[in-house]
């Protein structure tokens, strides 16, 4: 991981503060989350206090501070999905997989993220598991998806 971040920071030599968000985004893409180490490294590189980086990262939805689960489940909670029962879906996933929104299960298998509108209002409600979409979700369909995930 160390090497990845160093390599990445090399790309951003002579960068200023406005590169902070792109750098953090790339780190998260490569490593999956922002570790303390990464934040300190970026701080040293850009000469920004770590408190400011942490403050910034906690502001935005995108950044996370623990690794994603093996299965990263995103549930859309846009208006259309809300009207078609997204709350119920979140509820079921939280209960069946014993995971809370924004967290990863202790065994690292599942992580759940509530996202505001993924733009597929025609297919509401929608979830995505590791980038694979399940749309027009019914409770039965969701149940099957979860059984499949749990079974593996």
């Amino acid at each position: 991981m160390d090497g990845t971040i160093n390599l990445l920071l090399e790309k951003y030599s002579h960068s200023r503060r406005d590169s902070l968000i792109p750098i953090l985004q790339e780190i998260q893409e490569e490593v999956g989350y922002l570790s303390e180490e990464a934040i300190v490294k970026v701080g040293n590189h850009l000469n920004i206090p770590t408190s400011k980086i942490y403050g910034l990262a906690t502001f935005y939805n995108q950044f996370r501070f623990e690794p994603k689960g093996k299965y990263h489940i995103q549930v859309c909670h846009g208006t259309a999905c809300h009207l078609f029962g997204a709350i119920r879906i979140i509820d079921i996933i939280e209960r069946k997989l014993k995971v809370k929104a924004g967290q990863t299960t202790r065994n690292g298998k599942f992580s759940l993220e509530i996202v505001p509108c993924i733009g597929a209002c025609a297919q509401a409600p929608v979830i995505s598991v590791n980038g694979e979409y399940h749309s027009n979700l019914t409770e039965d369909h969701l149940g099957q998806v979860l059984i499949d995930l749990n079974g593996e």
């Binding site: 503060r17 406005d18 792109p22 910034l56 935005y60 939805n61 995108q62």
Partner: peptide
Amino acid sequence: VRKGPGAYVCGEETALIKSIEGKRGM
């Protein structure tokens, strides 16, 4: 292209500018 890291308030122009500057989008 700047990729906004996700905050509804960044639709407000001054917050958007803060976000581009690499700050909290307030």
